[in-house]
């Protein structure tokens, strides 16, 4: 069953309880955060508007990170994008592929929100949702979440006429359905967060080959893995340059 988060950027008041709860619940090491809040300011004093956006995994249905992952360490489950760090090769493709710039390399392995897969399985909600004092975060069946997001948007339009749902269809439908007080570009969100043509070309041609290469390298030796990764990067760079040309 497809699950999803609701993220209401109208309600979010930037308190960072979500970031802290995520860090404590998942016992993330110092320096690692799966949720970062970014203060936004538009206009010039004193004619201002602004708020907070969340920099976090949006769990794209058509997830570029999953598409490029050569080992299957990133995969879809229940509509969310999970991570298996024990089979991550550390190639870093996900970091480059993500249209939102979310995954980070921590200790050489891909690191990002996995939707608190384990706590949800244990009968709870993701840590960030449990704690959010502003009720800006919810978690549930995606269908219900989308419905809730639409209702919130309808209510919010009395205050913000441009309020809209974001993520219902973007990138094949996000696993974080957002309630936006304004247009996405105004809030520094991609209007069309589809991965670049680079990724499509790459997944069609290179991934099958590299998947085998990486798997082999992982089995063989760490050193080989490093070489494989360097090769990947060179290939990727060549493709990128090709795109630009």
């Amino acid at each position: 069953m497809a699950m999803a988060f609701l993220l209401d950027l109208g309600r979010c008041i930037g308190c960072q309880a979500c970031s802290a709860a995520c860090k404590t619940g998942n016992e993330l090491a110092a320096g690692t955060q799966f949720i970062r809040l970014i203060e936004q300011t538009r206009g010039e004093f004193p004619d201002l508007s602004g708020g907070f956006t969340n920099h976090r995994c949006y769990h794209c249905a058509d997830a570029a990170c999953v598409n490029v992952c050569p080992t299957g360490a990133l995969y879809k489950e229940d509509g969310l994008t999970r991570t298996s760090r024990d089979i991550c090769s550390g190639c870093g493709y996900c970091v480059e592929a993500c249209p939102f710039g979310v995954p980070e390399m921590v200790d050489g392995l891909s690191s990002k929100c996995d939707g608190c897969a384990d706590t949800v399985r244990a009968g709870g909600e993701p840590w960030c949702v449990v704690t959010c004092p502003s009720n800006a975060l919810e978690f549930g069946e995606r269908e219900e979440i989308v419905k809730e997001a639409r209702e919130r948007v309808t209510a919010m339009r009395a205050r913000y006429p441009k309020a809209r749902v974001y993520g219902e269809d973007e990138a094949g439908g996000l696993g974080v359905v957002m309630v936006l007080p304004d247009d996405p570009d105004v809030l520094d969100l991609p209007v069309d967060p589809a991965p670049g043509a680079l990724i499509n070309t790459w997944t069609g041609i290179v991934q099958p080959a590299t998947l085998a290469l990486t798997a082999g390298a992982t089995v063989a030796a760490g050193v080989m893995g490093v070489i494989a990764r360097r090769n990947h990067m060179l290939e990727l760079k060549a493709l990128e340059e090709g795109e630009e040309a």
Binding site: N26, R82, T83, R85, D86
Partner: peptide
Amino acid sequence: GSLAQKRPGAEIPWYR
């Protein structure tokens, strides 16, 4: 499976 992964913070979730 994915739960026994090398988490950024802990090998196994603390509550287990």
